[in-house]
Design a protein around this nucleic acid. Sequence first.
DNA 1: AGCTTGAAAATTGGATCCAAAATACATTAC
DNA 2: GTAATGTATTTTGGATCCAATTTTCAAGCT
Lengths: 218, 218
Amino acid sequence: MALKFEGISKSTSAATTIYDALRKAIIEGELEVGEPLRQDEMAKLFNTSRIPVREALSRLEEHGLVKTRRYKGAVVSGLSADEATGIFDFRALIEPEVMRRAVPKMSRELLQKARGYCEAFSQSTEPLHWGDLNRDFHSTLYGVSGLAYHLEVVDNAMDRVDRYLRAQLVLSNGMDRANIEHFGIMEACEKGDADLAAKRTFDHIEGAKNSLLHGISA
Amino acid sequence: MALKFEGISKSTSAATTIYDALRKAIIEGELEVGEPLRQDEMAKLFNTSRIPVREALSRLEEHGLVKTRRYKGAVVSGLSADEATGIFDFRALIEPEVMRRAVPKMSRELLQKARGYCEAFSQSTEPLHWGDLNRDFHSTLYGVSGLAYHLEVVDNAMDRVDRYLRAQLVLSNGMDRANIEHFGIMEACEKGDADLAAKRTFDHIEGAKNSLLHGISA
DNA sequence: AGCTTGAAAATTGGATCCAAAATACATTAC
DNA sequence: GTAATGTATTTTGGATCCAATTTTCAAGCT
């Protein structure tokens, strides 16, 4: 475990700080699947007692990011191919609908902001930023749908697969595919064509799924 | 707060026991929306210290069943009409697809088991059992879909709206509608007509949504 | 009366300490 | 040499104690 951290803010609870940091570390793949998260190791790292650490781990478990066994502790949880497929199938069901409902509400400013993220993503060479830029791009578009619950759930689904997506992007030409699809989605949004945007969102997710499962994509 | 409880099992953690009990109490409407859940009150109730109580509350918050504010504690969370609508829209998106994928895998035994729950639901006069029977019915059918993640998420969505559904069933003729729809779904499953089962599942959820939002249904 | 104000009580967040279980490891029997 | 066994260490789960914050409420002022 090669995790670093300095200083706990005073305005938010220690448990939340630890939760956020560990979530980020897991999503970014900084912590490997199966790696045990020892309570007092974390406690020392964050300069707290084990109590807030346990609360953070408990929350992470509810979100499926760690697995805990009684008296055995928490380990970073991974996904089988079947589980990953299930999550992508789920996203392919939700996100197109969110997109369809969001398109009519997109202002010119919003579209520009999204295009900004989209271009930043396409030009970024730092894999660690890809996840954030990708999520910023999609969240910006989805946000105006007003479907708060859908977004909450999609966020969690993304949390679970982001690591695998980044790994895939790094070692294949997945970036090219992702960029083409992103600009295609942008274009549909700018045209105000909700159905097209939804379809392209669906294809985008299916593309990611297949690229992940079959190794390298075309 | 009129909650009762006797004895903690030794095989599962205290936090889990408390979590399960509070979740049940909230879902069944035994605890009112907005009611504060004091840590040491819960601790005395379950004969533990506040530590496992805090872990349970933290988990409940991740599932949206309580809302917590720093130094102010947890209260049972409720839903605005918009939020409820959002959750039903979400379910109406997921559950028909789960049903569609489940129908081809339903064995004769499974169908009989589901019909059993369906009939028990139609004959039960005890509102407190309705929620369980209803979920047993749907979960039995959904279970064979193999879509574990979808089911996990649907379960949480159900957790959030069950209270309101029960209340609605109690004070209107919602029971009749629900039963007709349940038997319609059963019939489609028994015929092996996945699309019909999916459509009826969709209508079932839309029906519940409308019955809830417009007061009494026709 | 109504509104500040400030101390006491209640309540949550976190630290330290103890108990229960799992793991590691040395010792012994064969 | 290897496997079984029992003890020491590690690690987690829970209890108790302390600190930080909020809430309550009575006293004092206008």
